[in-house]
């Protein structure tokens, strides 16, 4: 007589008979499935943990300074990949500079200069389609264009240019987003005191958008660090005994070396690869961390 003296008993029996809302059952299903949804989301995190666990389990014993200071050798024991680490740094520097300059320029053109119309639509569609081209196809482009046609050869520069093209759409899209988020009032204020378009962009829009642009560029560059396939196509070799000496030197990169070690049948090379992956992941996670930090700071105390 306690819980049932609610609305139910006030309803006429005839009305009550027509309805079977099964509220309890529906609520139970809802609650139950909400837990399933939660578990599905957490499973992604769990997979990340599992992945890291496997890597540490296999690679822990192989993590040593040798990895950073030694070069490729016949035996897993004492092997390192210093040339690959330096190669990756060179590649990322080249690709980062190329994509930053062209990407930010493109974003400024699309957001601040070009009138909305068929031209911008075309450029925009082209950019989003480029971002969906498989990375190995960029490798085929780089091989035919840089290595063979321009006759640069299988050197670091060819890899850096290919990587630059690969991450260009990411940089453009992120920069556009950052520029678009600069409030209109800031532009109007600058135009209002008689600034030219370039003065407005140079002094106000770009500085305000820069944290967002840098975040996007860091994320793009961290994608380049992990890319393997296009580098193998344009001729990064896994068997390199000395550090790269410049943009026209033979080279290898971290993921290429990891691929080579992973593909070898001996288990100790696979363990060595795990250790190398840990090095790669530390670099990547710290870059991602910087990017996320930049963006979260961006969310606060601005306009």
């Amino acid at each position: 007589m306690s819980a049932t003296t609610d609305a139910q008993s006030l309803e006429p029996a005839a009305v009550r008979r027509r309805w079977r809302p099964r509220i309890d059952g529906r609520k139970r299903t809802s609650n139950w499935l909400s837990r399933v949804f939660f578990l599905a989301t957490v499973s992604a995190v769990a997979l990340l943990v599992l992945l890291l666990g496997v890597l540490f389990y296999r690679g822990w014993d192989w993590l040593s300074l040798d990895l950073l200071t030694q070069q490729y050798s016949r035996n897993a024991e004492g092997s390192g990949f210093q040339a690959a680490i330096l190669g990756s740094i060179w590649l990322v520097a080249g690709a980062g500079i190329l994509s930053f300059v062209i990407g930010v320029g493109t974003a400024i053109f699309l957001e601040e200069y070009a009138p909305r119309g068929p031209l911008t639509n075309f450029l925009q569609t082209n950019i989003s389609n480029l971002s969906g081209v498989p990375s190995v196809v960029y490798g085929l482009l780089g091989l035919a264009l840089f290595v063979e046609f321009m006759n640069i050869g299988r050197v670091l520069l060819a890899g850096a240019l290919t990587m630059g093209l690969l991450i260009l759409p990411i940089v453009i899209i992120a920069s556009q987003e950052a520029i678009r988020n600069v409030p209109l009032g800031l532009r109007q204020a600058a135009y209002g005191v008689g600034a030219t378009r370039w003065q407005v962009v140079r002094h106000h829009v770009l500085p305000a958008a820069m944290p967002g642009i840098l975040t996007g560029t860091i994320l793009a560059v961290s994608r380049a660090i992990g890319e393997t396939a296009p580098l193998i196509v344009v001729g990064a070799s896994a068997i390199i005994f000395r550090n790269p000496s410049g943009f026209f030197s033979d080279y290898t990169a971290m993921p290429v070396q990891i691929y080579q070690w992973t593909a070898r049948p001996q288990e100790e090379f696979k363990d060595l690869a795990a250790a190398a992956i840990i090095v790669l992941m530390i670099v990547l996670l710290s870059m991602n961390g910087i990017a996320i930090y930049l963006r979260q700071r961006l969310g606060k105390d601005r306009w």
Binding site: G226, I258, A274, L280
Partner: peptide, 24 residues
């Protein structure tokens, strides 16, 4: 909490997933 971890998962290079498939 969850969104950044998803993004981290997205940032893992594919070569690492390949390693995971082959060795785990």
């Amino acid at each position: 909490y969850l969104k950044p971890s998803l993004e981290l998962l997205a940032g893992v290079p594919t070569i690492v997933y390949g390693y995971f498939a082959l060795t785990f």
